[in-house]
Design a protein around this nucleic acid. Structure first.
Lengths: 354, 354
DNA sequence: CTACATATACTCGATTAGAGCATATGTAGT
DNA sequence: ACTACATATGCTCTAATCGAGTATATGTAG
């Protein structure tokens, strides 16, 4: 160790190649915006907090809560986020994690192009909706309001076979050979893998990939708004979910995908639950996030066996049947296991991957 | 679906709470820096590309390649990154993904505090070191040069029991009750979980957590440089890895952790391999990233069984034994399976988590 | 008291992970 | 040519785990 591999060292470094980080500042006049995807589960429905977008715009579209990051006021990004989320919505965030930083041009196209650029840093926050009595702004809206194709709770959503699949097939065929060579994976394959066409398995985590494919194909409203040429090929479209301001729908898609992924290997579901809950309520919450039907008995075995919960001693009656024991999250698992999570059993076709 | 949950809607939104994203720009005078952790494996050693830091600084410390992001020049962050990485080092990046955006104050403390703030967006790039003949700047350095405690190839590294464990225990005991209540997890528990003390399993993915714990405890050089009070408690320290400029060691730690995690569920190892390779070479590369000894026969079974590779038909002789078949990456897996990766077998104690 | 609904306990078979043994096929030395 | 050796590769065995089903417990509604 500590080897320098100096055989590979290169000739005297050219100073012109060295760019100090401080130099970088002068040259990049940008603003930092923070966007929060605040997620909860309300009556077995997965929801995110939406605010009305820029009220000066012609038609106010939905937006995620957002605010500037001012490094003079706040020492950390997360601190800044928590502060203005509280000011704007009244919510005191609990769990929060950074998602992704979006800076593609196209975020601000509306008036002239001379505006300063905004880089937006997306955050995911998980909270318990019913505990947010102090909510002063914003509405909880179902995820599936924005992404109807993600709603598999009643089986495969109709919109895929009826609206998405035929248009994506058209779009896939409608490609010049030059363009086909640019992309390593062909359009048809991407559509098949993203949306589980032609018997391919559905991967509930690919939320962002699906949204971006629809954007690229010009099917979502944001593509038209941004003047993407692909959008011009589709006159009189049905609605592919409700649009959001700038790229907020990308950020929320990232948040949903991350939530779905993370719930499987970290005990983050409990951020969405009240202190005491029954195992079936826990299962319903997981299903709200991931999609349908887990095997009830196995779910119990997994959750209890992993030491994620402990009984409170009480029961909840009036469940329509035998009363259910109440449980609480065992915070100690965090000290015991390096990566606890709610393992859910996927159908064998998917899980046999390696 | 499309439910509005209007029962939870709130009174007329207060306009003062609405902050347009364009407003945000005026108020946040910051620069965007891009940092690239360019990772390769060279002679079974995991390496990253390091450049000399700001040459005007008193003592030039190692740095990751970095450059500004200028939105007028480049449409995307990744595009900007690729451009200046090429200019600065001669490397044409292949695989690249965004890691994390760091903006904590403390990044620039050296002279006055009046400097503009830099937000740095870290990227991970994987490349094949021996294919980089055009390298014009920078040195490949072993990961373990910067993080000796991560090197488990010859068993548990001595530095943990000899230098880290006793100091972390001191640091854990040396805490006021007030401070203890701020952190949800006690210092001693964090140290135990991060560094696998007292029989706790080592989690090779927690690279960032370990570095940040050492920083917080004042043990790494950057903590002293930043004037952290914890660093003052340790006169005459042994060296806990080689420091880097500003927070580059945090970024590289993030990159290592992400690489270790991702190699298990996406076929990213092949970015580090030449076109043709033997299964043992592939195994050695995985072991360079993850740490020691996978079961050879099972590794073969997993990799072949997953359809990740196909034989080229050739063999590699002069291996010191029976010649090994050469394989190549089967790109088609990307079209077949939603999440292929190199599953490695962890000891049962760890994998039984759920 | 009965029908029913949900909760909870237990069982079974198929698959897979982890480990080891056996065999194949080259190189190096005599 | 033959032997010792090293690595590659194929196969088997066992325990753990997963997905699914059956059986039982305990409440509510009529």
């Amino acid at each position: 160790m500590n080897m320098e591999l100096s055989g590979r060292r290169l000739p005297s470094p050219d100073k012109s190649h060295r760019i100090s980080e401080v130099d970088a500042i002068e040259r990049t006049p940008v603003g930092i915006g923070l966007n929060a995807a605040i997620v909860a589960v309300l009556d077995d429905e997965p929801v995110a907090l939406a605010v009305r977008g820029d009220p000066d715009a012609a038609s106010a579209t939905d937006a995620l809560p957002f605010g500037p990051f001012n490094p003079r006021e706040h020492r950390t990004l997360e601190g800044g986020l928590r502060a203005w989320v509280h000011d704007q919505t009244g919510i005191d965030l609990g769990y929060a994690e950074q998602l992704y930083t979006f800076a593609d041009r196209g975020r601000h196209l509306e008036p002239g192009d001379n505006q300063p650029h905004v880089v937006s840093i997306g955050y995911l926050a998980l909270t318990q909706a019913s505990s947010q009595h102090g909510l002063t702004n914003g509405v909880w809206r179902s995820w599936y309001h924005y992404y109807p194709w993600e709603d598999w709770r009643k089986g495969r959503p109709e919109i895929i076979a009826r609206d998405i699949e035929p248009r994506l097939k058209t779009w896939a065929n409608n490609v010049s050979t030059a363009a086909a060579q640019q992309r390593p994976i062909a359009r048809a394959d991407r559509a098949r893998i993203c949306f589980g066409l032609d018997g391919t398995a559905w991967d509930e985590e690919k939320v962002l990939e699906r949204y971006e494919l629809l954007y690229e194909a010009g099917l979502v409203d944001e593509a038209r708004r941004d003047g993407r040429s692909a959008a011009k090929d589709w006159p009189d479209q049905p609605k592919f979910g409700v649009p959001m301001q700038t790229d907020h729908r990308r950020i929320l898609a990232t948040a949903i995908g991350r939530t779905r992924a993370k719930i499987k290997y970290r005990p983050v579901v409990f951020e969405l639950m009240p202190d005491d809950f029954t195992l079936y309520e826990l299962q319903k919450t997981v299903e709200a996030i991931l999609g349908p039907h887990l095997h009830k008995q196995n779910f119990r075995r997994l959750v209890e066996g992993a030491g994620l919960v402990e009984p409170t001693g009480d029961v909840k009656t009036r469940t329509g049947g035998r009363p259910a024991k109440l449980f609480r999250f065992r915070r100690e698992v965090l000290l015991e296991r390096p990566a606890p999570g709610v393992r859910v059993s996927a159908p064998p076709s998917r899980n046999s991957s390696l």
